[in-house]
């Protein structure tokens, strides 16, 4: 089985099959044998026999975004999207630091829009404030994911918004 994955913004190709009671996992041409046991429906215990029998636990969890899962490991959390068949849209080795293409800024939590800091057509810098949403009694400034131009502002000041509501589009 072959899969194209986006791991933290980077394209990875993985081949996986079973061999000698283990899983043979080839990530971008590097082969690994893994002893995997399910702890529960979304947690694996992994032992790599050829790497000093290194042992670790990984947990998987949907992030709420379509097709995306969070992989929890000792070293941190990676976000992974399975893109089999759609790989060509992603450049190999594209970093996550500066988002590319059209970016949507969504409300990360339900709340109230208390202030709009930009208008459609404004040029913005990465991390520049776009909109202020009040939730949990705090005012939270949502920032631009990239340098670019605001192409759309889809909410008005005073509006109540649900989590995931599209607020601003930056091109």
């Amino acid at each position: 089985m072959q899969l194209q994955l986006d791991v933290n913004g980077r394209l990875r190709t993985v081949d996986i099959d079973r061999k000698d009671g283990l899983y043979r996992v080839v990530v971008d041409g590097v082969e690994r044998f893994v002893d995997a046991a399910a702890v529960d429906a979304s947690t694996f215990s992994l032992i790599c026999p050829a790497e000093g029998r290194s042992s670790q636990e990984v947990g998987l969890s949907p992030t709420g975004l379509p097709g995306e899962i969070a992989v929890h490991m000792a070293a941190g959390v990676a976000s992974v999207r399975v893109l089999t068949g759609a790989a060509s849209r992603f450049g190999r080795g594209a970093g996550a630091a500066q988002a590319a293409g059209t970016q949507q800024v969504l409300a990360p939590m339900p709340g109230k829009v208390v202030k709009l800091l930009v208008r459609a057509g404004d040029e913005v810098k990465a991390r520049q404030g776009l909109v202020v949403v009040e939730a949990m009694k705090m005012e939270n400034e949502l920032r631009s994911p990239k340098d670019g131009r605001v192409s759309e502002v889809l909410v008005a000041e005073g509006a109540s918004v649900e989590a995931g509501r599209l607020l601003v589009v930056v091109e």
Partner: peptide
């Protein structure tokens, strides 16, 4: 980010996601 993922961890994440899809 506060926790920067080493190269090795990104491999493990890819392997784990593949394992889940495969199983």
């Amino acid at each position: 980010p506060f926790l920067e993922m080493p190269e090795h961890a990104s491999d493990i994440a890819a392997a784990a996601a593949a394992l889940q899809a495969f199983t």
